[in-house]
Amino acid sequence: MMESSRWMQARRNIIRGKYLYLMLALPVVYFALFKYGPMYGVVIAFKDFKVYDGIMGSDWVGLKYFKRFLSDPNFWTLVKNTIVLGLYMLIFGFPAPILFALLVNEIRQKWYKKTVQSISYLPHFISMVVVVSMVVTFTKEDGLINQITGLFGAEPISFLLHAEWFRTVFVASEIWQTIGWSSIIYLAALSGVNPEETEAAVIDGANRLQQMRYVVLPAITPTIVIMFIMNIGSILDVSFEKVLLLQNPSIYETADVISTYVFRKGLEGFQYSFATAVGLFNSIVNLMFLVAANQLARKFGNSSLW
């Protein structure tokens, strides 16, 4: 009796919302086809996919391709490169926008603050292809970077032809690209700092650096903690497009990461099942990191992505 009246209620609600469901129809088809469709397509990681046989018709092979990846001579290099690049971003890329926000926050001249901010956001909107094109031309032997380092007497280097330079180039250009945009969240937190607290510090004789250190920084620490945890969650999720565009065969030793390997094996080498298995491995590890980081954030920061 209870059950049936609940169904009646649900039916009434659905009928009353029929136009809303009508609106949702196209988006639902979109998500089913282009988001959940490929998730179904992931089964080819466990099959010997042949284009002619299709996904359904290809034979199951179990974990064959996962085993092949684990015993792949490139496996450890790929995992190491992915982790090291992620760690470098965490160590150097993460603090940069915080420092930038702290400095911007100290500017008293409104017009100057606005100009600095507006210019700093610009690279975020420029396409990855254009940014990498700039990096590639600037780091050539006769490029802008070598012209500048030449002023200090350094020998010109073709940075992107030397494996040991790749990570530096990647991280430096990433900071250039994101320092402004990533600082927004910290600036928003900084605008919430109570001016009475800084005034109290001034009366106690604190100079500007001491004010920053003891009043302003603690006020945005919760934001920093949350952002740090989230960054750990996406540590292995390196910017695929950027690495793909920046790398070249002579520096694969440091510049090849799991996602670019998937791209090369799958779309250039046509090893669909193998590449899908590697990609699935990558996204499952990423998801595990994200879930773990989110647990941490929930525990320590009372904040969650979902």
């Binding site: 490929p38 397509g41 992931v42 080819i44 799958g266 779309l267 899908t276 990558n282 994200l290 979902w306």
Partner: peptide
């Protein structure tokens, strides 16, 4: 609906299945 949609932000089938689709 929201859960199913937000889930796609965090997990995807990957490049190759999308290409084949």
């Amino acid at each position: 609906f929201m859960k199913l949609i937000v889930f796609t932000m965090f997990f995807s089938g990957g490049l190759i299945p999308l290409f084949l689709l």
